[in-house]
Amino acid sequence: MKLTSETKLFLGVLVGTVIIVIGAMIAMTRPAKPIAKDKLVSGAQHTIGPKDAAVYLVEFSDYQCPACGQFYTVVKELTDTYKDRLLFVYRNYPLPIHEMAIPAAYAAEAAALQGKYWEMHDALFTNQAALSEKMISSLAQDMGLRMEDFTKDMQSDGVKKIVTDDIALGDSIGINATPTFYLNGVKLNLTTLNDLKVAVTNAIAAEK
């Protein structure tokens, strides 16, 4: 059978495409390498649990994202249950679509300067549905923070840098949604809240 020039051209493109697709599939379907603990944990401002725990969970989160609010309760349960065996690291990753996400992250970091990071963190998630500038001030007052310092710190370059550094780290490892969890450096693909519980429980059990 004599092939027309049109058929030859199509055949060439077809073969080229198949080679590209096969090459890309081979290259891309290799499992992603775990991210080094140093990169995810070192420099983290806020952790719960022993620093040398064999199992570590890093969360990139946004105080205004509804899914983060739902996972907050699961994380709380896990950090309570495995307080001696799990290192939990919280990293800020406020999404631009959430108006109050950045002020909330600044508020948590400003509260940290007065030793009340986790109190503010808990309060922000607990009151997520009603987050506003007024609500943040009210939470800070209820916690007994020095309001003048708190307001000043929220706008300080130091606080902004902590949040910006967390975002830059998230960007550098390809995060584009919240919450994103890394368990022992491996990104978790979670479809339900229970998936996180199962993943952490299994990792802890494997370390026994």
Partner: peptide, 10 residues
């Protein structure tokens, strides 16, 4: 590949 590797998508 992102579905299979469970990695982020641009």
């Amino acid at each position: 590949q992102s579905f299979l590797r469970q990695t982020g998508i641009i």
